[in-house]
Design a protein around this nucleic acid. Structure first.
Lengths: 246, 246
DNA sequence: GTCCTATACTCCTCTAGAGGACTAGCTGAC
DNA sequence: GTCAGCTAGTCCTCTAGAGGAGTATAGGAC
């Protein structure tokens, strides 16, 4: 089997690219933790035996990717997915009229099974490849608002199969980060409309055939790899979705 | 009167910032036209009397902003608002299943009238302030897909009241740009579902009470000023909306 | 205790240059 | 005519440095 060239050592790549991967690995490994300052540019340049400008270019790339954060005069820091803003970055639902919601959530089911067509296509897997399936109900004021089916590719999300269900009593993306060190950087949503099937209607406490909104999301990591696919259903009348396009 | 510091000459700004503005001006002025190659980096650096790296940093900024485009070995080019990508940047509708649509459109009505509550709030006007109202039907394969009501603040969009209706036979944002020199840089959409009223159902050729999607959009210029507000209705079953979140 | 200042540290800007990678077009051998 | 190879032009990578700007802290003057 041909060995896949490692981005960190592949000599065909420019030095700053390889540096970028080397630095990213230190963050991934936990050698540098969120909130920490990393060594000074000049020290890193000396350590890796490159010129300052080259090291700056590597760091710049990670800043753009959102992994690092520079503060002039203070240092360069590993960015924490700060809980004020970005925590709700991917949570686009709002109540009718646009009030932000403070939902609670409940894990309804958790099992391992084949990905199936839609999830496989989004995650770059074969339909029969195993994934971890989560089913989760989101409620507002104890009223069911959204039912999610979530597919997570499997060697990588294995730990989540055994995490106590009580730990799911929070947003999922911070959970991925805490338990697996997996960060969601980007996502695509597709919003459409359908009629509720029985399987969807029951947990939402609506009637079969009632209008529902369907949101299909694929979420990606910093490196562009698809990490999560989900399909969400909610009663159409109570639904509102906000986006900013730039 | 205090003179506003010109970004091109304000000495407090770094050189590369001032260069960026100087280059952008040449594009704005039409000295360099879309599709043209601009002079080589080394020539520009010599012309402005700066080091190559400084000029590269200035150009890099314009590339990120989307004004320039580099092609290794060939040159640096003024980017044309290519009809493939950016033209449809704000066009998020897709056919069921995600196929991109090639819609035609027809101007149904054009009149001047008070903004009303919703449009006024979005545009920062008083409800009785006059705006130009457009009503426009978008069709795919001669089938009505979306009916739009569009509010445009009035001294600014005055020219659009007299533009021949035939000119509306294209996308609106390029029309704003061509006729008024007004560029849309950013927008927010809010998506919700409702039942069709008679006024909406008739042009869409659906029944009153049928489920429809409602998209409310506010569009902004480069300076953050709201320029357009619109409310769109479409038959829910045929609707799909794609977003990328980052 | 409070305030100022010196200092040491960080990232930021800018210079000057060498060599590599990529592209396009010309030239000459066939 | 075709095609390989040469060449000049472009952007890209990388080096080695100097000085500036912003931040935090320790010491000393009051």
């Amino acid at each position: 089997m041909q060995s896949v060239p490692d981005a960190r050592t592949d000599e065909r790549l420019p030095i700053y690219q390889r540096l970028k991967d080397a630095l990213a690995e230190r963050i991934q490994d936990g050698a540098w933790k969120p909130g920490d300052a990393i060594p000074a540019e000049s020290d890193l340049a000396a350590e890796f035996g490159v010129a300052l400008g080259t090291m700056r270019k590597a760091i710049e790339g990670l800043v753009v990717q959102g992994l690092l954060e520079r503060r002039q005069g203070r240092g360069t820091f590993v960015r924490r997915a700060d809980l004020g803003n970005t925590l709700f970055r991917f949570f686009r639902h709002t109540g009718k009229g646009g009030r932000p919601l403070a939902p609670t959530q409940r894990l309804v089911a958790r099992r391992t099974g084949p990905a199936g067509r839609a999830a496989a296509a989004a995650l770059g897997l074969a339909p029969e490849d195993p994934v971890l399936w989560l089913k989760r109900l989101r409620l507002v004021d104890d009223e069911p608002l959204v039912i999610d089916e979530i597919a997570l590719p499997l060697p990588r999300f294995e730990k989540l199969a055994t995490v106590p269900a009580a730990d799911f009593d929070e947003l999922l993306y911070p959970l991925y980060e805490r338990v697996l060190g997996v960060t969601i950087a980007r996502a695509t949503d597709r919003i459409a409309f359908a009629r509720a099937t029985a399987a969807v209607a029951r947990p939402l406490a609506i009637a079969t055939g009632d209008p529902v909104v369907v949101i299909e999301r694929t979420a990606f990591g910093h490196d562009g790899e698809p990490l999560e696919w989900r399909r969400s259903h909610g009663p159409a009348e109570r639904f509102s979705y906000d986006v900013e396009i730039r």
